[in-house]
Design a protein around this nucleic acid. Structure first.
Lengths: 359, 359
DNA sequence: ACTTCTTGAGAAAGCGTAATCTATAGTATC
DNA sequence: GATACTATAGATTACGCTTTCTCAAGAAGT
């Protein structure tokens, strides 16, 4: 069933059917009604491929994420899909899993499907691939790392804002020895967080001995290892700020194994505010980076680039604030002697079966 | 840049270019090489829309899931995408969020984009929508609930297999009072799990007093409430089997608040084996339902339906086994007097700040 | 009453490709 | 040496739609 079938049954030309469906105002309301009736009756849905072919617009946006199985991304995908669908766009999702081969394939797929734009929400991407997309004038939007050229938008994240809040929150709770667990140091986003931490600490005159910054991997495992290192320090920190929530969750998990009670003995702060962080024990105090807003900005950036047909094709900039959200994983620093006591906690990892209790 | 541009530069007809690209064997290798060279040089990628239009195949599969933010689904999406991409298919993802309006829109989108098949991995879906797809002869694949008609495949899940293992595992650990936390009772999958539990219990002659089955919601909250109920029972169960992992995680979380030590005082078993369940404290013993295999079967079902052009269009059936995977949340049942002791644990919920310790 | 606009709708072109149909040269057959 | 095949590649059509062009009829201006 195609547009001609409708035309025949409504006794009009296909042009009129097309105009009706696309709500071109010059169609006589009488005729339009007749057309709509047939459309409804037959359950006709226009063929998007044909439309795309003739209009040159696919109404598809590509969405490239690092790993859909990383709890940070599903929220973004969901929000992005929400908005896209509302505006009659489809999304072509790809999860690169940090594999260059997959990235290349992803870009190829996007080009073959003639996407109208691509949101690149991945940490790290080959320049040559981006060039491939730029060459075909596909509007792009990046987080943080986009080049400053026409047709490329950027969402700048103000890490400083939330991280400063976190540091000051901890300082207000009398924490002096604050540690930081970074992400992989080749990620620009991880470096930016680390820099923000250092800046915020310096601002209030707190020193950071090098051993109090440990390198993680933005996964639970990294957080677990980080805690082991930090707990073994002579001047054990009383608070740990983490480069992302998964790291913080790893820290908390391992702290539990060591019988370190959070937040009594140790305050922990995360970053991202993934949904899961509401459900840890205790709920995680973290710096929120709104996934919904991120998706919204990304979509808006692409859309405005597409809409602006011939006019100035300047890539725009968006700014996403981060904000501390207080939950249960932070508390007053242990007072002097308690701190001493807690530093005496045996550093033997509890045997698996025995579990839970801190004697 | 289109196929004609290539044809012109390679001094052949568009037909030859098309044949070359599609690897039709009747093209002279010499010519083919010439064509490929131009293709490479210009970085030409065929326009999928045009291909779809003329071939009648979009090479897109729809994938409808309940909620991408539910940790069960990202793994499936990832696996499905993997396989799809390998076979040059694209996926059109939609997350219904249990909203009938969104489901309707999703189906409409799928039809407009002329998907070659739809995998419906959602719990519950309006029949009228399915009818809409069936009417257009779109191959479908369901989990459990699909009708037994041509063009519709089904992946049957053998809940019994894994749940029996779980029950027998608990029985072997001397648990006699085993409780079950169901999912929402309007879900066929939740009912099937409950039935499997009852069957397995009956099989080994264990009774299930009605109060030992409590209704959850397949979310953490439901698990938390369930624990409250079960812990309040006179004959407190020594083991709890949950209809899914999120429920089990909720149970464990609340148990922690009550100072009930897992697995010493209480064994907990989940269902699904989401990745997160490896990272709980203690790691969750659970019944695995392989998300990878599920995705694989779903894809295979659709593909074989598409491939089989004119031949017998019979929907096929797949069976997915479930299997117990042992981790740390199950242990020997507390012996008689310990059980008594543990049943005397105060039922006061610990004050938030105090947290962690079971004195 | 004649020309000039305006409105609305039909006819037809074209989007980029694959499939079908046709032509041409070279091979095999008798 | 004439006919019948067989490869191979070019010409053409069709896919379903939007858009431009064209045209008819009525409204308005002179």
């Amino acid at each position: 069933m195609d547009i001609r079938e409708i035309a025949k049954r409504a006794k009009v030309s296909t042009a009129t059917v097309s105009r009706t469906i696309n709500r071109v105002p010059s169609v006589d309301p009488q005729l339009a009604k007749r057309v709509w009736k047939v459309v409804e009756e037959l359950g006709y849905y226009p063929n998007t491929q044909a439309r795309a072919l003739v209009s040159g617009k696919s109404r598809i946006f590509g969405l490239i994420v690092s790993e859909i199985t990383n709890p940070f991304f599903p929220e973004i995908v969901q929000s992005f899909e929400d908005i896209a669908v509302q505006h009659n766009y489809e999304i072509l999702l790809t999860s690169t899993v940090h594999d260059p081969k997959r990235m290349e394939l992803a870009v190829r797929r996007m080009i073959e499907r003639r996407v109208d734009g691509v949101a690149i929400l991945t940490f790290g991407m080959e320049d040559s691939l981006i060039e491939d997309l730029r060459f075909r004038k596909v509007p792009l939007v990046f987080v943080d790392v986009g080049p400053h050229v026409a047709g490329v938008s950027n969402i700048r994240i103000d890490y400083q804002h939330g991280i400063r809040q976190a540091v000051q929150h901890l300082a207000a709770l009398r924490h002096l020895r604050i540690a930081f667990v970074t992400g992989p140091l080749h990620l620009k986003s991880a470096l930016a967080r680390k820099a923000a931490f250092e800046g915020a600490m310096q601002e209030i005159g707190l020193e950071i001995p090098p051993e109090r910054i440990v390198v993680g991997d933005h996964k639970m495992e990294g957080g677990m290892q980080a805690l082991v290192q930090l707990a073994g320090l002579r001047d054990r920190p009383t608070a740990i700020l983490c480069s992302n929530d998964m790291t913080a969750i790893g820290v908390m998990r391992e702290a539990y194994e060591y019988g370190i009670v959070i937040p009594r003995d140790l305050s922990v702060v995360g970053f991202d505010d993934i949904r899961l962080s509401q459900f840890t024990t205790p709920p995680l105090t973290t710096v929120q980076m709104s996934q919904t807003l991120l998706a919204e900005y990304a979509f808006k950036a692409l859309r405005s680039e597409v809409e602006r047909v011939a006019t100035s094709p300047s890539g725009s900039e968006y700014e996403l604030l981060t904000n501390l959200v207080l939950r249960g994983s932070t508390a007053l620093a242990p007072s002097g002697d308690i701190a001493m006591k807690s530093s005496k906690i045996t550093l033997l990892r509890r045997a698996p079966g025995e579990s839970t209790k801190n004697r």
